[in-house]
Nucleic acid binder design. Structure first.
Length: 113
DNA sequence: CGTATGACTTTTA
DNA sequence: GTAAAAGCCATAC
């Protein structure tokens, strides 16, 4: 749902909408969200949207990469927060940083084409 | 309008 | 099984 002031761009809004659809205790991947939006090729832009995200109402921490790991390219502190949030949601991390229940709680988005 | 960047995914070695 | 390269698309300048 549209907030008072969305950042502006339309793609971001879609990403926020999809991510906000993810229930607590579940996780999703950029590719799935991207596929839900249209094409998986926009997976990068999904991460972009989350990077530019300012609304705390969007559970960005529930979005991880296809490897089931936390994605962080340049912002390490953000990853710590994400892991912490996921742990509070009841998720468990493996020794390699992979989400154990990733395959179980992962939200399967279908390409609406 | 063209160039540059990037919280990714998939394929190939 | 892991490691590296290419591809793709939207936003910013």
């Amino acid at each position: 749902m549209p907030q008072d002031r969305v950042i502006g761009p339309g793609f971001y809004e879609q990403v926020y909408a999809v991510v906000a659809t993810v229930p607590q205790g579940a996780v999703t991947t950029y590719g799935d969200v991207a596929g839900c939006l249209g094409s998986r090729t926009v997976a990068r832009q999904v991460g972009w949207a989350l990077a530019a995200l300012r609304e705390p109402e969007v559970p960005w921490h529930r979005v991880i990469n296809s490897q089931g790991k936390i994605s962080f390219r340049s912002d390490t502190p953000r990853a710590s927060l994400q892991m912490d949030l996921l742990r509070k949601e009841g998720h468990t991390f493996g020794a390699d940083g992979r989400l154990d229940q990733f395959a179980s709680v992962r939200h399967a988005y279908a390409e609406q084409a």
